[in-house]
């Protein structure tokens, strides 16, 4: 039997702003197994980053986790006091934040920044042991171990991103959440960084939750995929099914809108309209205003999941024809 390192169940995270409640995550569930690379793919404003922050219990105010469960290696994250959460971060789950390579401390040697994390979590007895560990981590992520004495400005973008990955791995977490880990890097560098993440993941059996907007990247690295739209997961299955047999009209639309540099040149079809304002999400299925296949029921009732399998479902009335018809 597979063991999951992360289970998110029916999670709601809302931002209580002056202009209304932004329903950023509005009933999302997902699972990540040991040794898996799972992608959470969505466009800007889909709620994917908020979901990641919720797993880390780092949702910034005015955001709040309204309800749901998050189970991390058997621990109920939402029931823990703040003190214990802090211990959980880095050790059980760590996060590579978007743009993290630009938030390395510019006046501190990169190795020392890793030693600092190790010291804070009492993972080492002295600095020399920390430096040794930092060198090992550098080797693991494909950096010259001697680079631990460099300052961030002496490193290239790709090298800095490797430092950030090393830091995320410092305390041997079970799960690494990587939020757009290669955005802003050149394609050739991006490819190498993703290779490194993939290799490490296989080598040390770590799980990765990759948060991204980049569909081709997902095709290249993910085992399984969750597609998020307007605060909800609309479809999930293994990567090949997502790309070769997409079911949800949003997933299909997204795949049809992305150009490829190989294969026959196809006409791209953009999805009409724009994602909704999450203060006023449309009733029924949130995708219906942009959906060319929308039926009357889609405007009224939220579609149920097509199956009980949390790893393979679609949330769309097209896959519940009987119920959809009854309400017609």
């Amino acid at each position: 039997m597979k063991t999951s390192v992360l289970e998110v169940e029916d999670l709601y995270v809302h931002y209580f702003t002056d202009t209304g409640v932004v329903r950023a995550v509005d009933g999302a569930s997902l699972e990540v197994d040991r040794g898996e690379l799972v992608a959470l793919v969505g466009e800007s404003g889909s709620g994917k980053t908020t979901l990641a922050y919720a797993i880390m219990r780092l949702v910034p105010p005015p955001g709040r986790i309204v309800k749901g469960r998050i189970i991390l290696g058997g621990i109920e994250v939402l029931e823990l006091p703040e003190e214990d959460i802090r211990k959980l971060r880095w050790k059980k789950v760590s996060m590579i934040f978007q743009g993290a390579m630009n938030s390395l401390n510019p006046v501190m040697r990169v190795g020392d920044q890793i030693v600092e994390v190790l010291l804070y979590h009492e993972a080492i007895d002295d600095i020399e042991e920390g430096r040794k560990r930092a060198r090992e981590l550098f080797r693991l992520v494909g950096l010259d171990p001697e680079r631990i004495d460099s300052y961030p400005h002496e490193l290239s973008g790709g090298q800095k991103q490797r430092v950030v990955i090393a830091m995320a791995l410092a305390l041997n977490p079970d799960l690494v959440i990587a939020d757009e880990p290669t955005t802003g890097l050149d394609v050739t560098t991006q490819a190498k960084i993703m290779d490194t993440i993939r290799e490490i993941q296989r080598e040390i059996g770590i799980s990765v939750l990759l948060i991204t907007h980049d569909l081709p990247l997902v095709a290249e690295v993910a085992d399984r995929v969750y597609v998020m739209y307007a605060g909800k997961i609309v479809e999930t299955s293994d990567v090949e099914k997502i790309f070769y047999k997409p079911r949800h009209p949003y997933t299909r639309g997204l795949i049809g809108a992305v150009p490829s540099h190989i294969g026959p040149k196809k006409k791209l079809v953009a999805l009409p309209g724009e994602p909704p304002d999450l203060r006023y999400p449309p009733p029924g299925c949130r995708f219906h205003p942009r959906c060319s296949l929308a039926m009357p029921i889609c405007r009224e009732k939220e579609p149920p999941l097509s199956s009980r399998d949390p790893r393979d479902y679609v949330s769309c009335w097209l896959y519940r024809p009987r119920e959809a018809g009854e309400n017609d």
């Binding site: 290239s156 990567v239 790309f243």
Partner: peptide, 26 residues
């Protein structure tokens, strides 16, 4: 190197594709 680094929205092709790697960075 550039062309072979571009991710392809096709998982099977992606697994088989060979990349030409350049040393270091620009």
């Amino acid at each position: 190197a550039l062309v072979s680094s571009i991710p392809v929205p096709d998982p099977k092709y992606a697994k088989e594709k060979k990349r030409l790697e350049l040393r270091g960075e620009i």
